[in-house]
Design a protein around this nucleic acid. Structure first.
Length: 455
RNA sequence: GUGGUUGUAGCUCAGCUGGUUAGAGCGCUGGAUUGUGGUUCCAGAGGUCGCCGGUUCGAACCCGGUCUUCCACCCCA
């Protein structure tokens, strides 16, 4: 009985055309990572469960794909525990490995394990798939690629400046103009929470604030009230709801709002430094925008927070994100190593480029020329030509069977092969070949000796 | 994890309030065309209607379950 094939939800097959396009994006990203001085590493697809657990918050823990232990894993579960049917507790007994959830935590683990071999500051990049046991929806998959660049071992804000430039360089080279690099700072958020007297509600406060563009001012206020943030406190942050103007104006407003908070003031200073540096260095096509509602990834960011929004008019979540985390390696026993990094969301960038029709036509071209097969002797002559062409880097192939011309031409047409070369009995005898342009429909005869000068 | 949505030929989809043999377009194979693709014409192949169960004389259609798709929430790239 033939079984109906299928793949798990949230996963995808990639066709040759899709792989070409994905490689086009990946190559652009890697190229710029290298020009900015980052070095590649790779880490295993799965890690020890305890390396990952507790690093992404409660929600994150739930979304980690856990790998069942091998062997008779249930025998290790005590009967009384088994009877409780407490999935979370039992899970810890029957699984000790998990698929990686992002590239940042494995990187932190890598840095700690190899600290003696690493020269700091260490700049690494990593392009590998990650897995999340999430419900898929548009632009969200259960297996997807992250393209990360991080620096550890430097507290310099020049790193942040460089990451802004890196985002700009990559998106510009992909001709994806008009992306907005949104920037915030954890210290600013802490400062705001402190000023309004809701310091212990920082996470609730920022998560609600983050939804401003989605649920509006009233929605945010309602959620804050619901989370137990006082009415008066919310009144104090009223300026944030109409937070517009240039970056300079926003900085000025923040400075006043946070003047009583030491931490908040520090955050404003950091933002100012980056903004001023970028203003004097300039960006090619992206714009940098302070967004105090930006609050993703708060579980470990301590300074700058980045998120990249696609150009206006494209319905898609963020296509990149990142930030500074002062003590990520601390949980693995290496103190005082500051890190900062960014990530590119390959799958979403793909969808955006597709929507805006920004893939160059040449990306999907696989073969330059197809040789028509007229039989054994003719095919041998074709193979001689193919050998020469390939040595010059031309993508060439012989149709494998001496099928009907009609069929071979249809094949060339369907594969979108621009040129076809025919060497039949007559051409073989005359030491010539016929070159046909599939787009124009025109063809001409050349001497076989001239084959290498064709392309 | 919560709520909703979707599933019929390789693909995109019709299919009436439940009624004989489930259709179309595109694609595929062959032919018109034995050395010329894209356009045209002719012929043909291809479906246990997602899967399991129930209601009914009778189910693609109604009901339950399950898987899948897409969307929103949570969260996030």
């Amino acid at each position: 009985m033939a079984q109906k094939p299928g793949i798990p939800k949230g996963t995808r097959d990639f066709s040759p055309a899709e792989v070409s396009k994905r490689n086009y994006i990946i190559n652009a990203i890697k190229r710029h990572f290298q020009t900015f001085g980052f070095q590649p590493i790779e880490t295993p697809s799965f890690e020890n469960l305890d390396t990952l657990m507790g690093k992404y918050g409660e929600e994150g823990d739930r979304l980690i794909f856990k790998i069942l232990n091998s062997g008779d894993y249930l025998s290790k579960v005590r009967d009384d525990l088994y009877q409780t049917k407490d999935a979370n507790k039992i899970a810890l007994k029957i699984t000790e490995k998990a698929l990686r959830y992002d590239l940042t935590v494995p990187f932190a683990r890598y840095v700690v394990m190899h600290q003696n071999d690493i020269t700091f500051p260490f700049k690494r990049y990593q392009v590998q798939p990650v897995w999340r046991a999430d419900r898929p929806q548009k632009g969200r998959f259960r297996e997807f690629y992250q393209c990360d660049a991080d620096v550890v071992g430097s507290k310099s804000l020049w790193q942040e400046v460089e990451f802004v430039q890196l985002y700009d360089a990559v998106f510009s080279s992909l001709n994806l103009d008009g992306v907005t690099i949104k920037m915030n700072n954890r210290k600013v958020l802490s400062g705001i929470a402190e000023v309004i007297g809701a310091k212990e509600k920082l996470i609730d406060f920022t998560v609600a604030l983050d939804k401003l563009d989605k649920i509006g001012e009233e929605g945010v206020k309602n959620e804050m009230l619901q989370k137990g943030i006082a009415e008066e406190a919310i009144q104090k942050v009223q300026p944030l709801f109409g937070f517009t103007g240039s970056n300079k104006e926003k900085l000025q407003q923040l400075k006043e709002l946070l003047s009583s908070s030491e931490e908040g003031t520090k955050g404003v200073e950091e933002l100012s430094f980056i903004i001023e540096a970028i203003e004097s260095l300039g960006l090619k096509s992206a714009s940098l925008d302070i967004d105090v509602t930006l609050a993703r990834g708060l579980n470990y960011y301590t300074g700058a927070i980045f998120e990249v929004a696609p150009p206006e008019g494209v319905q898609m979540g963020s296509i990149g994100g990142g930030g500074r985390y002062d003590d990520l390696t601390g949980i693995f026993g290496l103190k005082d190593v500051s890190g900062v990094g960014i990530s590119f969301g390959l799958d979403r960038i793909y969808l955006v480029l597709e929507e805006l029709n920004l893939f160059p036509e040449t990306v999907s071209k696989q073969l330059d020329v197809l040789f028509i097969n007229f039989g054994e002797k003719e095919a041998l002559q074709a193979m001689r030509a193919i050998k020469v062409l390939r040595s010059k880097g031309v993508n060439a192939e012989l149709y494998p069977d001496a099928a009907k011309m009609n069929k071979q031409m249809k094949y060339a047409n369907k594969r979108d092969i621009p040129k076809v070369i025919m060497i039949g009995e007559q051409e073989l005898n005359e030491q010539t070949f016929v070159l046909k342009d599939m787009k124009e429909g025109s063809q001409e005869t050349h001497s076989f000796d001239h084959i290498e000068n064709l392309f």
